[in-house]
Simulated scan of single mutants.
Amino acid sequence: MRRILAATALLTTLCAAPALAQAPGRSGAPPRNVTATGVTKPPGGGAPMAPAAQAEMVKAQRAAADRDKAWDSKMRTTMGSICKGC
């Protein structure tokens, strides 16, 4: 009987530990926002970006797109001589 009670107490403690660790306000961090689709958003995520930061982000996205296009073009010409498709 003691073993059953000890096992039950241990199981209850282990199962409750993750829930207690994630309880809001316990860690001192602000609570996270969860959307209806289950996506976790950081607190204050709706704040607009500064125009300079937004312009730099757009510039970086364009540069990444240009790099991707160049890589795809290079791979098409390189692999075209090796592989003719399946």
Rank of each mutant, 00 (worst) to 15 (best):
M1G: 08
M1Y: 00
R2K: 07
R2S: 10
R3E: 11
R3T: 02
I4G: 02
L5T: 02
L5I: 02
A6S: 09
A6C: 11
A6F: 15
A6W: 13
A7R: 00
T8E: 06
A9L: 14
L11V: 05
T13K: 07
L14K: 03
L14Y: 02
C15E: 04
A16M: 02
P18I: 07
A19H: 06
Q22M: 11
A23R: 14
A23S: 06
G25W: 04
G28R: 07
P31D: 07
N33L: 14
N33S: 13
V34K: 09
T35D: 14
A36R: 11
T37R: 10
T37H: 10
G38E: 07
V39T: 15
P42W: 12
G44D: 06
G44L: 07
A47M: 10
A47N: 14
A47E: 13
P48L: 08
A50K: 15
Q54C: 06
A55Y: 03
V58F: 11
V58T: 13
K59C: 06
K59M: 05
R62A: 15
A64V: 02
A64C: 01
A65N: 12
D68E: 14
D68H: 07
D72Y: 07
K74H: 01
K74G: 01
T77R: 12
M79H: 09
M79V: 13
S81N: 12
I82N: 08
I82H: 12
G85I: 08
G85C: 05
G85V: 08
